[in-house]
Computed example of a mutant assay.
Amino acid sequence: MTISDLTPSVPTTFGGPDIPPMWFVVPEGFHPLPIAATPEERAAGAADFVRELFPNGDDDLWTPAALFYAGLAELMTEGGLAFSAMGLFGIDDGGIAHCSFTVSAVESDHPSVEVAALGLREIMTRDPLNDARWLDLPCGPAVSAVSMREITIGGEMTATGEDASLLTGQIQVYVPFPTGPFTAVFTLDTAAVDYWGEISDMTVAILRTVSFTPPEEQAAEGA
């Protein structure tokens, strides 16, 4: 599985009118969906998105695809997501491994990030399907919950016409904000479980870039 280094020039900025800003970096291969506040912004972003996702396409493909992804972005915006991306990575047989990556923020009136993380770990361990763990990230404490689930795909959607089982994996990480009463929720879902090790390493690498300090201040501190 081919995954590029986390070296884009500009980190992704996450935040909103009531949510303090947060920054993180994703590798090349992730294609952010056009989540935006207005229909006009979503339409423009969707047009750019489909041309990036299908560079060899044409208007017959791009036009309906842009409408679909603009509608999907609207649903995600209404659901509270502030960042969503599709990850497409080359694998050894020439195929593509796919994953989805989202980031949202939920209110959490915590007195400290440590207290928030302890409470989250307690909640996560109650689900026997979760592998819940404490994480010490550069930005502070976090809690991860990893799960594997088998889903059934109806025969009307398979090539054989028969029901099929598909194993999927999810990595969900909760990062309490030190700058406000919110917790960031990073979620990565994939059916490419044959590459679970690489996907897990990539997720950890993304999480280690999470910061609540503006990039310019980080650069000044590192100078």
Rank of each mutant, 00 (worst) to 15 (best):
M157C: 01
T63Y: 12
V185M: 08
S165I: 08
A65T: 08
L72F: 11
S165C: 02
N56P: 02
A65F: 11
N56S: 08
P27C: 09
E217M: 11
H31M: 07
A117N: 07
P17A: 13
Y69R: 06
D60A: 15
F182L: 01
S100F: 12
A116L: 03
P111D: 13
T179N: 14
E52W: 03
G15N: 14
F24M: 06
Y174L: 15
T160S: 15
P214V: 07
T2K: 09
H110C: 02
P55D: 04
A159F: 04
L6F: 13
S144Q: 07
S112H: 00
R133H: 08
Q172N: 00
R133E: 15
M1A: 06
L129I: 07
D58H: 05
R51C: 11
E107A: 15
T2E: 06
F89N: 01
A159G: 06
E162Y: 12
A191R: 03
G29I: 01
M124G: 07
G169E: 13
A142R: 00
A184I: 02
T213H: 01
N56F: 15
F54Q: 11
T125I: 13
A132M: 10
I96M: 14
F182T: 07
E107L: 13
D48M: 11
P176N: 08
L137V: 05
M202D: 01
V175N: 02
V10C: 06
S104V: 01
G119A: 06
I206L: 05
W134G: 05
H110T: 00
L135D: 09
I199A: 03
D163F: 01
F89S: 03
S100A: 11
D92Y: 08
S112Y: 03
T179S: 12
S200D: 06
A205W: 05
I199D: 02
L6N: 10
G95T: 08
A205V: 00
P20E: 03
L137S: 05
I19Y: 10
P176E: 10
M22D: 00
D194G: 14
T63G: 03
E28K: 15
A159Y: 01
